[in-house]
């Protein structure tokens, strides 16, 4: 399997504060990569650098084969992004949202039309094509937001706490969508607060105070830290943290 993300000593400083401190890791194609850490550990900063939003202070990063510092345009073209807020336009219809985001990523018009039909059929949303997003139930919005984020068939999709504030059943259903995406070869880079979700990842990295403290499969991590659950692993690591948001 080829690497779709390669990060080498990536660092970000804000003045004298080092938010991300020489992190290095690789993510393989089709993998579900969990990016965990307490608030203030530097997760968001690292993710913003990988998405080409924030230039790094030093170090190298390749995302989908492009350098995040010099080829941010190409990086942006080849990734998808979804945040906790779902980021659909509430006052636009379902199909209008799909067309808008498809257009942003340069999907040609005829392709948008046929793919929209396929997508609505697959999600069972055919009757909701002309529904305004604000009248959809939360779980549906989440499904739609994820489908929109991978509508342009990106190599990697970044999910920033995608299941925040959602009940466990809806969360479980959402993970089924994630598995479907990886079946199609899309790599998933996901941050989460929920440690039960960490168990669903192929590999998990734990960030503490700007460093990556541990990186392995959930099974190996639990063995390494003599823990029964990922939550225990996280507690043991987070205890070392010197800084936090709160």
């Amino acid at each position: 399997m080829e690497n779709v993300i390669e990060v080498n000593n990536l660092t970000k400083k804000f003045g004298s504060f080092t938010a991300v401190d020489h992190i290095s890791f690789e993510v393989k194609q089709g993998e579900i990569f969990g990016f965990l850490g307490a608030n203030g550990a530097g997760k968001t900063t690292a993710m913003r650098m990988l998405c080409g939003l924030l230039p790094s202070t030093s170090g190298k990063g390749l995302v989908a084969g492009y350098d995040i510092n010099t080829q941010s345009e190409q990086v942006k073209r080849n990734i998808g992004y979804m945040s906790q807020k779902f980021a659909l336009y509430e006052d636009l219809k379902v199909w209008e949202n799909i067309r808008l985001y498809g257009g942003i990523y340069g999907v040609p018009e005829p392709q948008i039309v046929s793919k929209t039909n396929d997508l609505l059929k697959r999600l069972g949303f055919e009757n909701e094509r002309n529904t305004l997003v604000n009248s959809l139930p939360l779980g549906w919005k989440q499904k739609l937001a994820f489908s929109v984020a991978i509508f342009h068939e990106p190599k990697i999709v970044f999910l920033d706490e995608p299941t925040g504030g959602v009940d466990p059943i809806t969360r479980r259903k959402f993970w089924e969508l994630i598995y479907e995406a990886t079946d199609r070869g899309i790599t998933v880079f996901v941050t989460t607060h929920y440690m039960d979700e960490a168990e669903y990842c192929d590999r998990v990295s734990m960030m503490v105070d700007g460093h990556i403290e541990a990186l392995d499969t959930p099974k190996n991590l639990k063995q390494m830290f003599h823990a029964d659950t990922m939550n225990e692993v996280f507690q043991k690591l987070a205890r070392k943290a010197q800084r936090s948001d709160s």
Partner: peptide
Amino acid sequence: EFGTMEVLLVSPF
């Protein structure tokens, strides 16, 4: 406020 700006900024637009 709605977070759509973030998504637009991550996009190539």
